[in-house]
Amino acid sequence: MSDELYGAAIKELAAREPAVLDGADASVSLDNPLCGDRVSLDVRLDGGRVTASGHRVKGCLLCKAAAALAEERAVGLEADGAAQLLDQVAGMLKKGAEPAFPALAAFLPVRPHKSRHDCVLLPFKALARAVKAS
């Protein structure tokens, strides 16, 4: 049974209204051509630190939840730190690492479902590219 993927924490993240960011320093849109998910991640930086982020997502519940977490988590991080979120999420899903921060634990049930890893990773890939592009 795969119901455990859709726990309260993930559903709460997915239900959050995405922030709309005007005047972003960088915006990156990424598609997952296999499943059709599309994420656009916007960031504003000041002195190398992410000061605001926003996103738009057309995708599954896991992708929406991950995008909300990426948007929230990025703010306040140095650009490199925001980019490293991708490694932290991938490490947890693909290499069995412990969640790097408490909110990421909501995605632990995704770990055994390899076909859904990209749903979670896509927003963090977009974030990494956005901060590198800014």
Partner: peptide
């Protein structure tokens, strides 16, 4: 409900 979420839950059944 997104089709992928539904298909995943159906697979579990």
């Amino acid at each position: 409900c997104h089709p992928h979420d539904l298909s995943h839950l159906l697979a579990g059944r």
